[in-house]
Design a binder for these strands. Sequence first.
DNA 1: TCTGGGGTCCTAGGACCC
DNA 2: TCTGGGGTCCTAGGACCC
Length: 421
Amino acid sequence: MTDNVFALVDCNNFYVSCERVFRPDLKNVPVAVLSNNDGCIIARSKEVKDLGVKMGTPLFKVRDLIKEHKIRIFSSNYSLYDNISTRVMQTLETFSPRVEIYSIDEAFLDVSGRPHRETYGHRIRQTVIKDVGVPVCVGMATTKTLAKLANYAAKKFTQTGGVVDLTDPQRRQRLLDITPVSEVWGVGRHHTESLARIGITTAGQLARMDSRFLRKKYSVVMARTLMELNGESCLDLEEITPVKKQIVCSRSFGEKITDKSQVRQALCEFAARAAEKLRKEQQRATVMTAFIRTSPFDKNAPHYGNAATGRFFQSTSDTRQLVGMATNLFERIWKEGHRYAKAGVMLGDFTPEQQMQYPLFGQPEDTDTADRLMLAIDNINKGVGKIWFGGQRPKKDWYMKQDLKSPAYTTRWDCLPVVRG
DNA sequence: TCTGGGGTCCTAGGACCC
DNA sequence: TCTGGGGTCCTAGGACCC
């Protein structure tokens, strides 16, 4: 019988690579991309990584370094990244009939039974760079966890040419023994520290642990990781994206807010945005949680944060109801006299649009009319238009900072790059 | 002065029921 | 006076991922 083989294709420094697609002048120079609100560095080119800038570093802490090394800084431009991601995935789908899009910048491919795997991996790389302009690395192995590790090796060791096939057991063993346990998929910061206390620092050591012990001390997840490291596949390819169980819409504010009506507006806006996402998922929500909080970093003022949850009589995706609920919840958690830094809305407990749950008592609400209204509004808002509800407001004093955003090259006609002949 | 956002899964413990 | 045990559901918190 032939073993399953997974290939993990992962884009290199994805957001940075996206910025470079339309700016060849950014090649081989240090580039970094910022989080929402221009707060932290969330993507770094190799040059920036080599300078020792860590993922998540607050921008203000590296101002001097940026100046000194002329690091090019960009606000995040998600519509651009989404669009380029779609192109990468479409290219990958030409290589395998079974593809799991795992995140914006990586996908698992089923490459079982394919001969000359390494050559195939190189072809994938070349095609993506040629067709989309984004560099990727390819890791292959008999389990997803090992494919992840193979990809890590493909990125770390340049002599691999960006492709590593880990199906050979001896090769796998050698890699495991030189790989820090923190690089293993599913082993985060806390588990790394905890494992170090019992003398486990490499992936190889973890792979030789007792499964029952790990199950007991950590969880079934860790026990599964152990099996996967030993080549026993526990995680299948998931081609169909599962429906969401929760939708969150939250933001830090560009500036701290003390004004009650502004925080309320922000929450209403988040509720409306969450409602749009919900309808896109073709779901209705039964519960909403709203939260507001001050900055946890502010040492000069007492911290305040609060959240409230409300339940709908009947599950809904009607913006008017969701905004109404957000307003009610807001009144329950608002406290005067604080400098608010962040707020958000979470939706949960979904029912599919097509299979409406009617309330046990009372009259069901007229969802048909509401559905048609929401559909019409979503269609209008898809264009340039804007229809908004009471509580939202077109001009947003609190809107996040995005001072360094690149143009929407691929999604707006007026931002198309100009070709000079 | 300035510190992201959006998800998932697992576990423990309490409430409740029979 | 003696005061069980097992199942299920829900929630909060913690861990992980990108």
